[in-house]
Design a protein around this nucleic acid. Structure first.
Length: 817
DNA sequence: TATTGTTGGATTTTT
DNA sequence: TCCAACAATA
């Protein structure tokens, strides 16, 4: 049976030819493929993102689909943003109507729209990994289990795994005693989350999947709506994500939905997180893909680099099969260096980097990759002492920082006093005389009455009880004081009123934390303007299909991944939207654009990036491949794919190094060079140290020492404070750059396009202070008015029903004299 | 309740 | 080695 028989054939008309210009035959085939299930095997540097975005643009431009009929799903916010940015550069269209986002972002959007059927409060909050761990710990304590036996981290892992396999507690039959205990933690954890109105990452996915599975009407609606579903990085999908995809597409022969999955099995490096490369083969079979399209033309690297990558990965079995090729010429051979120690390796690397910089290479085009984070220290130290600017990726991201999480916890308590996770985080921070014993008493009281901590403070007697009540009163006061304020002012008020600001002002090391809190205000401000909550937000044409489920959708809400309640018109407040944003997008940990610094990161973190010059360090047995992954074939192959990813990051020049001795866990380890080195083609390599000298020859050591005595090492002595602690050469780089983001990433989204400007503003007829009547919530007073036209929204205090944000275009509000 | 001492653990981590 | 987490201490 044909899919969408009335769809026009690929049409190289004048309109579309500009889009398709410059595509190679395979890319063109992928971009203009007729509707249907397609699997695109996209090699590294083969223009995958271009193909994805061009296809969407082409589908829209040729009228094969409307923006509302498109769903494009990615794993990272970065990839989603990239897609949106490129798309709006290609076409002057409203990208907001499309469902482009991460799996979790789209689930969030879906669940906010259907929160009632999903059994969630509309303002549900999202637990990040930290929150989830502390929630699980709380459950384990509550059940009085021994944390030595039922290990919180393991149990969190157990729960996440179960959810990613689509399993609820009732579906699990425990294999042993530990399994039984973990299962009961899972059960109690679910109850606790429900009580507190929170969901974890896996829950977003599972809840969405179940809703689609169990509600025929919803399922029919979305299966009818999305004509084209595109999935990025398909090799990284897990079991649940694949099932989720099938739920949204339905059986293509029945729904006519076109699914295009893009992936690269050779770059599957997240099996340890549940990714199933097998999904690619399953997709090909289950969706009856007529033919796999391979993108093998590489536009990134020179020949020797690709030859090396190809030769290495050929050692893996069970591949879908693909060979990268380039027109760029052979380029330079790979430079291989054997060092006597990790210390010497770092010295050599620094020297090479400086040499390249002298030759005109920017530092930011030099990346240093390693298998594990612990390796960065010695390299940082060497770079620091040489005065070379560098930036380490990884570590805590902006919204994960303690002071930021504290502020967010207060904000969450304002929104939902029953959020016990947040309550516990800040009940005694800053210190206010509420000790562990008091908290325990409170938790006992809360448990026995099945109520939240905030609701149970009166049950604790004496001075401690009074302190607790004072804390709750403080949060209540903040709630009152911030009612009707803008997001910026809410946060500013909370940071002061909570005592956080004062606390960090008196702290010795508090300055940076204060700056981060200020940055939080900036981030909120940027969020408000970027996401369309600001007063100047320009309304967009509504292009959603009007139906019983998704009504006409105001643009502002669509951007924050939420939809208004179809019945009451209620939307979530800017505060809730911001808290959601903070959980779903922890902020990147990148250097600010324009900062010229050597880039240090793990190979995992480098996936998707590219640099002119790349160093891959620590090519030693037991390190890369890692000792924990050497035992079985599958994980060894994943290590090899990791090496493949590392190699394919380089555009021009690739360095690979290893050392005879390395300090690991406080002990000197003697390593052999990695087997992966043996798998690289000899003719593509240039050995900087004699090859096959083997460990213990001493040559590399002598070479190194002779070199070192001349310069370099001496400067290491007494070089001052540990550079890696405070930032050193790259001091002051806070991960989340609100301003930079505003200028760069969102430029295209916020720029007023002609079509957006055309939207006429209509006077709503309401004003602040006005009394209004709502069919569901009764009488209320308008606190805030924002936006214009179909985008206009109001914040209304309904007294007993609380303060609500409503879309004027959906909510039926009548003025009262 | 903040500081100091002890112990154990130490791949990778898009959301 | 070098950290985080917890216990013991002032």
């Amino acid at each position: 049976m044909n899919f969408m028989p009335d769809a026009p054939l690929p049409d190289p008309s004048a309109a579309s030819s500009a889009l398709l210009k410059g595509l190679n035959p395979e890319q063109l085939a992928a971009v203009t493929a007729p509707p249907g299930p397609w699997l695109i095997l996209a090699g590294a540097g083969s223009g995958k993102t271009r193909v994805l975005t061009t296809r969407i643009a082409w589908l829209l431009q040729t009228g094969q689909v409307s923006p509302a009929g498109v769903m494009a799903v990615t794993f990272t916010n970065k990839a989603a943003k990239e897609m949106l940015t490129r798309l709006s550069a290609m076409l002057p269209i409203n990208t907001r109507g499309m469902w482009i986002g991460t799996f979790h972002g789209l689930c969030n959007r879906f669940l906010r729209a259907h929160y009632k059927v999903a059994g969630l409060p509309q303002a549900f909050q999202i637990l990040d990994t930290q929150d989830q761990l502390s929630a699980v710990k709380r459950v384990i304590k509550g059940l009085k289990y021994d944390e030595e036996k039922v290990i919180p981290k393991q149990t969190t892992w157990f729960i996440a795994n179960a959810k990613e396999d689509g399993l609820r507690p009732k579906d699990i039959v425990p294999r042993d005693e530990l399994g039984r205990l973990q299962l009961s933690v899972y059960e109690a954890y679910e109850d606790q989350c429900t009580r507190e109105g929170v969901v974890d990452f896996a829950e977003l996915m599972l809840r969405t999947y179940e809703l689609m599975r169990d509600h025929a009407e919803l399922r029919a609606h979305y299966q009818r709506r999305f004509r084209h579903i595109l999935v990025d990085e398909f090799q990284d999908t897990n079991k649940l994500q694949y099932a989720w995809l099938k739920m949204f597409s339905g059986r293509p022969e029945e729904t006519g939905t076109s699914v295009l999955a893009v992936g690269d099995d050779d770059q599957s490096i997240y099996a340890f997180r549940g990714a199933q490369v097998g999904n690619m083969a399953d997709f090909e079979r289950e969706f009856k893909v007529p033919g796999v399209i391979k993108l093998e033309q590489n536009y990134r690297s020179f020949g020797h680099i690709l030859d090396s990558a190809n030769a290495l990965i050929a050692n893996n079995s069970r591949r879908l099969g693909k060979t990268l090729r380039t027109d760029a010429g052979a380029g330079e051979p790979l430079r291989i260096y054997e060092a006597s120690s990790d210390y010497a390796e770092a010295q050599w690397l620094v020297d090479e980097a400086r040499q390249m910089h002298r030759e005109g290479q920017a530092f930011k085009e030099i990346a240093v990759l390693y298998r594990s984070n612990a390796q960065s220290r010695v390299i940082e130290s060497a770079l620091f002492n040489a005065g070379v600017p560098y930036k380490v990726y990884g570590g805590l991201r902006f919204f994960e920082r303690a002071e930021v999480k504290h502020a967010l916890a207060y904000l969450r308590l304002i929104e939902n006093p029953n959020d016990d996770t947040s309550f516990l985080r800040v009940v005694n921070f800053p210190a206010r005389g509420i000790g562990a014993r008091t908290v325990e008493l409170l938790q006992d009281a809360a448990r026995s009455s099945a109520r939240s901590l905030a609701q149970s403070v009166t049950a604790v007697p004496g001075k401690s009880g009074a302190n607790l009540q004072a804390f709750v009163a403080k949060v209540d006061a903040m709630r009152e004081a911030t009612r009707g304020l803008t997001l910026r002012h809410i946060i500013e008020h909370v940071v002061e009123a909570s005592g956080l600001a004062d606390f960090y002002r008196t702290e010795k090391e508090g300055q940076e934390r204060l700056e981060n809190l200020a940055e939080l205000v900036n981030a909120a401000e940027a969020f408000v303007t970027q996401e369309g909550f600001g007063k100047d937000a320009v309304a967009l044409p509504v292009d959603e299909p009007v139906g019983t489920i998704a009504q006409g959708l105001p643009a502002a809400v669509a951007r924050v991944d939420t939809l208004p309640d179809a019945e009451t018109g209620e939307i979530i407040s800017p505060l809730v939207a911001f808290l959601t944003h903070a959980a779903l997008e922890a902020g990147d940990n990148q250097a600010q654009a324009g900062q010229d610094a050597v880039q240090l990161m793990t190979v995992h973190a480098a996936k998707g990036l590219e640099f002119d010059n790349v160093f891959i360090t620590g090519l030693e047995e037991a390190l890369f491949p890692h000792e924990n992954s050497m035992k079985d074939g599958d994980s060894l192959e994943e290590e090899r794919r990791l090496m493949y990813v590392a190699i394919t990051r380089a555009r021009k020049r690739l360095h690979i190094s290893f050392c005879q001795t390395r300090m690991l866990h406080g002990q000197t380890r003697y390593n052999l060079k990695s087997r992966f080195l043996e798998e690289l083609p000899e003719e593509s390599l240039k050995w900087l140290t004699p090859r096959n000298q083997g460990f213990g020859s001493g040559y590399a050591r002598q070479y190194q020492e002779a070199w070192a005595s001349g310069r370099g090492l001496g400067s290491m002595v007494g070089a001052g404070a540990q550079p890696w602690r405070g930032g050193g050469a790259n001091a002051g780089s806070s991960g989340y750059a609100g301003k930079a983001r505003g200028e760069d990433d969102f430029k295209d989204l916020t720029a007023p396009l002609p079509s957006r400007m055309a939207q006429a503003k209509s006077e709503s007829g309401f004003k602040v202070g006005q009394s209004v009547f709502h069919g569901k919530f009764g009488e209320g007073v308008i606190l805030t008015l924002e936006g214009q036209g179909p985008d206009a929204r109001v914040q209304v205090n309904f007294g007993r029903h609380g303060t609500k944000w409503l879309m004027l275009s959906v909510a039926k509000l009548t003025p009262i004299e």
